[in-house]
Amino acid sequence: MILRRDTKEDDTVIAMLAAALRRDISFGALLPDQKLKLQSLRARYGGSNHSMRETLRLLTAEGLVEATSQRGFRVASATEDDVRDILMVRTEIEKLALGLALEHGDVAWEGRVIAAHHALRKAETRVAETTDDLTAMEWDEACRAFSYALIDACGSPRLIDLQRKLYNQSRRFRLALLRERRLDFDGRCARQQTLVDAVLARDSNAALAALEDDIKSELHPDI
């Protein structure tokens, strides 16, 4: 009898481990350039050697973890050059995807954008008053949902996949700005309202300009 591993079960474990590591990288519990040793990670998060190694390979493909020359792993760096590079590429990817969504999106898509924007406004109001971990996580999720809603009618699974990878790479920079109280929530509110109004009006030039301003404001407000 040939024993086969339960692929579905393995995939579920890897997905859970990846979500936990993404969260801790984003919130700074795992620091930039920190070495990631299998035994230490297993003691902290669980899983087998196989599942943890596959998790690290997945996060390496997403740009959150780097494989070292000695076949080890470490958290990806988070330098000024890193944030500028992510900002540049993410802006171009999202502008391309939003332009396609404006061409192809229907009324249902507009409704999803409005709903995600409404949820984000509520989350931003809460996080502007208090920045405990739970509120910050809820805000981060609302930011993610709004960003995804804007492009989900673009019709390109590859563009969506690229946007999600870049968005995950950018999370720790946005959350660092939140912890440092460097986010201008009034300005963000105005920019996001301008963006939604332009989307609903199908004003491509205004929407793309507003999107670029919004991404810059949440990643590098000093640019």
Rank of each mutant, 00 (worst) to 15 (best):
A136P: 06
I93M: 08
R144I: 15
W109H: 08
E110Y: 04
G111S: 11
Y148R: 14
K95E: 01
K165Q: 11
L150G: 00
C189F: 13
K122S: 09
A149I: 05
L178K: 01
Q163A: 15
P157F: 04
L150W: 00
A149L: 06
H104V: 14
K122L: 12
R181L: 13
E110Q: 08
Y167F: 15
A115W: 03
R179Q: 12
D133T: 13
T130K: 06
E141S: 10
C143P: 06
R144Y: 15
Y148S: 13
I160P: 06
R172Y: 12
L178Y: 02
Q163P: 09
L178I: 02
H117F: 15
L162R: 10
D133K: 13
Y167M: 15
Q169G: 08
V127A: 02
P157N: 02
R182Y: 03
E94I: 02
F146G: 11
Q163L: 12
A123R: 03
L183R: 00
A142P: 02
Y148N: 10
D132Q: 03
G105P: 05
R182C: 08
M137E: 15
R174V: 01
I151P: 05
Q163E: 11
D161H: 06
A128Y: 04
R164Y: 07
K122A: 13
L177V: 06
A142C: 05
L150Y: 00
D186G: 10
A142D: 05
R174K: 05
C154H: 06
Y148D: 11
F185T: 04
V107F: 09
A176I: 09
A176S: 12
C143N: 14
H117I: 09
D140N: 11
R179D: 07
S147F: 09
T131I: 11
L96W: 07
I93Q: 06
V113L: 07
F185E: 07
L178R: 00
G155W: 07
D140W: 11
H117V: 13
T131A: 08
L102R: 00
A123V: 01
